[in-house]
Simulated assay, not measured.
Amino acid sequence: MAIAQIYVNLPVTDLEASTKVYLAMGGTVNPDFSGDTSVQVAFADTILVQLMTRETFATFTKRSTSDGPIEVINALAAGSREEVDRLADAALAAGATEPREAQDMGWLYNRAVDDPDGHCWELLAYDPSAL
């Protein structure tokens, strides 16, 4: 059996503010899996981010959701450098922050944005033939 979808579940402090950032990065809300304490944002049929209030998220784990060291950097591939810049700029305008400068390695270009809770997302475009 092959993996069919990826779901990234994230605890957030302000559901509305976080949703705004993810929509700015190109996602759309799936109303079937959204409500007062959780919003599902789809980036594709197979890439879904479930934003949950910290209280709702805590019902799925016994581990603490307190701030701590970063444990994961998520990445979304875009079609071009211009699309990376457009999505990153839109996320920043929606309330994200940029934790570092853009990286241009010739074959790969990326920018990182942190959502309001510090969840890091790299937006990238690459040309494997130029590697």
Rank of each mutant, 00 (worst) to 15 (best):
L15D: 08
L15K: 00
L15M: 08
A17N: 12
A17D: 07
A17S: 10
S18V: 00
K20W: 06
V21R: 07
V21N: 10
V21S: 10
A24S: 09
M25R: 05
G26M: 14
G26F: 10
G27P: 02
D32G: 09
D32S: 06
F33A: 08
F33E: 08
S34T: 09
S34V: 12
G35I: 13
D36F: 05
D36W: 06
T37A: 10
T37E: 15
S38C: 09
V39R: 10
V39M: 10
V39L: 09
A42D: 15
F43W: 07
F43A: 13
F43K: 04
F43D: 06
F43M: 05
D45H: 07
D45C: 06
T46W: 11
I47M: 14
L48P: 03
V49F: 12
Q50W: 14
L51N: 05
L51G: 11
M52Q: 15
R54G: 13
E55F: 02
T59P: 04
T59A: 05
F60N: 09
F60C: 07
T61V: 10
R63K: 13
R63D: 14
R63M: 13
R63H: 10
S64I: 03
T65Q: 07
D67Q: 10
P69M: 13
N74W: 09
N74D: 14
A75E: 10
L76G: 05
A77I: 01
A77W: 01
A78V: 12
G79W: 04
G79F: 05
G79D: 15
E82F: 04
D85M: 02
R86D: 13
R86E: 14
R86V: 02
A88I: 03
A88Q: 01
A90G: 09
A90C: 04
A91L: 01
A91I: 05
A93R: 06
A93V: 02
A94F: 05
G95R: 03
A96R: 07
T97F: 08
E98T: 04
E98G: 06
R100Y: 06
R100E: 15
E101Y: 01
E101G: 04
A102N: 11
A102V: 05
Q103H: 07
D104N: 09
M105N: 11
M105G: 00
M105P: 00
